[in-house]
Design a protein around this nucleic acid. Structure first.
Lengths: 206, 206, 206, 206
DNA sequence: TCCTAAGCGAGACGGTACGTCTTGTCTTCCA
DNA sequence: TGGAAGACAAGACGTACCGTCTCGCTTAGGA
């Protein structure tokens, strides 16, 4: 077993990385829609032709750039069990998401805003729906849930995006943990009912 | 004193109307982002220069086109009172929204999709948030609500958009009424708690 | 009868003229093949897009630029008759061509040289062949000429181009008149024989 | 002292040959100007980098490819003497050129056509002029020729190119021998006069 | 037989020009 | 005066070649 399975071509990796960084950098300063490919390649010190060597368009670079972040983010979500369905558990899970958003606030503000990318919104939505469906709903749901799991996932993903949007365009008075808690409390009732979960009465806060 | 204070100039009105119609027509066929101003003026049998005589850009025409629709939609929402906060009432309100979406399914699919308009999404979001805040939350909320009304509005608006999105890209198995009911059931618990509403125990469906 | 048959659109004419001039100017400085469309539009103070509004490519501009010059040049060739076929007459005709070339020496040197345009050479060749065939050979030739008229035209056009080429890349020791005379003397014999013309014995110089 | 001064490296020779062949092959199908270096290396099954290892550009490959052909062609022209200046002798010489062109008709059509190479035309012209000057004019010309030898060479070379051009773009009704004869008859008079040659009266055909 | 320098394949890269597409502004003329 | 027609500047787009380069593999020919 040799270590030389593939040669990764350092130059290529370097270029991809430079482009990725350039895009993310630019997003801190301006809206996604207004960024030209020339802007990106200028910032990355790369020829425009080189860009097209690796990506079909801006979106493809964006998605490629996001992929690793998301892989890393979603990795490490421990599965939940029905018995664990408590506010406390929910809080922990969701706080991770909000922390991620907070860490890339400029980026998300640019992408979700009025000059952002509908493609990106779609992607985030799909990501969140999938996460919810696979990691939360499927493990928890009884066979005879009150609502279609896809519906619930869409509801939750939408709500989360809505809430993130609000959070980003607001002073930043709330911590990720607070946001997660607020989310959890808004969801708990509906989720519990839809999935026929035995909601701990103590869990309903006063 | 003559009656001719303004002359409305029929030609002008006619042109505006033609452009409006052309855009809405085109949206049934293709994504918003891919529609050019030339497309619109071609369809409207109008010179491109004329377009710029009336609108700064595509978005301005879009918003102008949407305005009347939304005015008509939002008009007629009767206010709600705390005592009325029941699933039944909720269902009725929301069903109107879903019916509206169903009536313009092509349009919404185009606008909210991967090649839609972020501006439009933002507008819809703002519209829904405002509706929720002004017509539902403010009348219902006690002074010491558990959560900020803006947060709740963002949550609800986001969830609704998420759900609409799912609904549009899915066979259409559910009627507007069903959608409204499903929404209501997902929201009821959280909303009741947040606003400290005396949720009728009979209202919690089994 | 009104004067307003068409409106020529002064702007358009002006732009075409600017582009034409720019190209001819640039040809004095550099080879045709090395001139980019950007070079032309820069020199003409015109947007590159405007260029493509009027011409498909560089060649089309070139030909359009040349057309008027050639129209003017070929106009005014009086027809020749068999009885007039003398060196003197030939000299006069051809001297006009050489004068034209001398007047645009830079241009022709650039176009016919190693970095010139094969398309252009072809055009000049076709022009000369046509001129020879229509204005000289057809009027003069008997029905039973010794050689195909097209062959003779090709021979003459080629010889003229060859001679011009030599002339342009040589000190310029010869006047247009001298060139025309030298050409005439090289051609007279063959032409006379091919067309069965009664060559005046006095016309054969010593 | 060994005989191994250089090692020829068969691989190198093979590559050069492949490239040469590829170019000539391609020229049978399309115009020179439209052939890219990638086309050539693809056809030769050679990497593009390898091309640049051996040639600066397309023209260099072309000229290198042509060289052997021309060496072989020009070799074997026996010198002519004044007494030999007859149509018969002329015919023989020139027929060789026309046969060569006929053997490579596709090639010459591509190179001399509207999308050919001006460089190549220049080369052919220079080749023909030189041939004429050195092998025909210098041996034959008296010290007091009526016209400059360079002029005559340019005239003859141009005429030949013109005639070849016509021949290539015409049905191919004439054999190389016929072409040579027609050329000879067009040239004989002028050449004889210019060089003060005693043209055999019997030689003037009827 | 080994070894070593070359030829070579693969392909990333910078660079330049291309021709196309929109956008928004403008001018001219017509109804 | 509103609109039609369309020229124009501006500038991004995606494509096509070019010539250079780096990295390894392979292979011929000298040791």
């Amino acid at each position: 077993m040799t270590t030389t399975e593939k040669r990764p071509d350092r130059r290529r990796e370097r270029t991809l990385h430079l482009l990725s960084e350039a895009l993310l950098d630019l997003l801190k300063e301006q809206d996604y829609a207004n960024i030209t490919i020339q802007d990106i390649t200028d910032k990355a010190n790369v020829s425009r032709a080189t860009f097209y060597l690796h990506f079909r368009d801006k979106d493809e670079l964006l998605f490629s750039s996001m992929k690793r972040i998301y892989d890393e983010l979603s990795k490490g979500y421990p599965a939940v069990t029905r018995s664990e369905f408590t506010l406390a558990a929910y809080d922990v899970h969701d706080a991770r998401d909000f922390e991620h958003v907070a860490a890339h606030a400029d980026f998300y503000r640019a992408m979700l805003g009025a000059h952002g990318s509908p493609q990106f919104i779609r992607m985030v939505r799909a990501y969140l729906e999938n996460l919810m469906r696979e990691d939360v709903l499927k493990p928890l749901a009884p066979p005879d849930a009150h609502l279609p799991l896809d519906f619930i996932a869409a509801f939750m993903a939408g709500a989360e995006i809505g809430v993130i949007n609000w959070w980003l365009n607001q002073g930043g008075e709330h911590s990720p943990e607070q946001m997660a808690q607020m989310m959890a409390r808004m969801c708990l009732g509906g989720l519990g009912w839809a999935l026929k979960l035995p909601v701990d009465p103590n869990d309903i806060p006063t």
